[in-house]
């Protein structure tokens, strides 16, 4: 790990000044592939399937951006990053965007010089315990051993939560989700804490998921979203509006099944027409084809489809939409208008 951090630092230092200022959009077009940073493996969000193909909710965002920019959802080079290497990889230009359940915080946005283009999953930090522990609230965890991924916001939330509630704990820092799973299942830690979605995804891979429970306390706000480097607003706009297109598509009922029909001729809904490029010049303003949103939606479906396919209630992960429903359904998803 030291090596990669060091190499990353060297890359930051050594790469020509071009990296920071240049137009990422032109680079991606010239290269013909999108370099997208994802996690090293988190079921439902980003993981390589049996054929080595990357799958998941975060992967879907990468594929949508690749489809919007290059017209080819498979033109993505997935770069697995750990909690520690992700920001260096992005800052150094090794990846064009990061879609790795990363929490949008003030200091990451302002101090680390990144631009969060939106939120694709509203999450919060939770605790998972084996049921045999007989614990029903996080406040009963005094003296427990807690497995935690190092280099994440969860590490700081955990310290705050236990300090405020005046209870003690023993942190066991670990590097990846897989190691956490090994230690947790072996009983080397009583509790595993990370974002609630991550807990659900991890639990889904256990042999007996029913033996484990997620405690009711959600101790933090974790808005997860894709991010890009500061200073390249054109590229930031591309990623932002691709994500918004997926969210708006669900709102207007545009799905991967009907998007080709709807885009073939102007419809009665002007908002859908502008979104799909049959009216107006929105694609050209971004420096993309007029039908960029059509490609993005066709790649993996709209936001709702991506959610249901990868992490929804009918998958082993079984997450309810909750906060991640459209604002029309009482959730927080609200795409600004395509106009």
């Amino acid at each position: 790990m030291k090596k990669s951090v060091f190499l990353g630092a060297l890359t930051v230092a050594g790469l020509a000044a071009g990296v920071a200022g240049a137009a990422t959009l032109d680079d991606v077009k010239a290269r013909g592939t999108l370099n997208c940073g994802v996690s090293t493996g988190l079921t439902g969000f980003s993981y390589p399937d049996a054929n080595g193909e990357w799958q998941g909710f975060d992967v879907g965002v990468c594929r949508a951006v690749a489809a919007a920019v290059l017209g080819d959802a498979s033109a993505v080079e997935f770069v697995p990053t750990t909690g520690k290497t992700r920001f260096t990889a992005l800052a150094s230009g090794e990846i064009d965007m990061l879609a790795r359940n990363t929490t949008w915080t003030f200091s990451r946005d302002v101090d680390l010089k990144f631009t969060f283009v939106g939120v694709n999953y509203y999450d919060g930090q939770g605790f998972m315990i084996p049921k045999e522990l007989g614990v029903s609230s996080a406040k009963e965890l005094d003296g427990a051993t807690v497995c935690i991924q190092t280099g994440t916001t969860t590490e700081l939330n955990l310290a705050d939560y236990f300090r405020v509630n005046n209870i003690s704990y023993e942190p066991v820092p670990i590097e990846t989700n897989a190691e956490a799973q090994q230690q947790f299942l072996a009983g080397a830690c009583d509790v595993y804490t990370t974002d609630a979605s991550g807990l659900a995804a991890t639990r889904a891979t256990f042999e007996n998921p029913g033996d484990y429970a997620v405690l009711p306390e959600i101790i933090s706000k974790e808005p997860l979203g894709p991010l890009v480097r500061h200073g390249d607003d054109e590229w930031g706009d591309v990623v932002r509006w691709t994500l918004n297109a997926l969210i708006a598509a669900e709102e207007y009922g545009v799905t991967s099944a009907n998007v080709a029909d709807l885009a073939s001729a102007p419809t009665d809904n002007p908002e859908v027409n502008r979104l799909l490029g049959t009216e107006g010049e929105l694609g050209a303003m971004l420096g993309l084809e007029a039908d960029f949103a059509v490609d993005a939606i066709a790649a993996g479906g709209n936001y709702g489809e991506l959610f249901e396919k990868n992490i929804g209630e009918n998958t082993p992960i079984g997450l309810a939409r909750g906060l991640n429903a459209q604002y029309t359904d009482g959730g927080l998803l609200y795409s600004p208008p395509f106009r």
Partner: peptide, 9 residues
């Protein structure tokens, strides 16, 4: 070079 690096960037 691990957590501090990560939290402060």
């Amino acid at each position: 070079m691990g957590i501090t690096l990560n939290q402060t960037g």
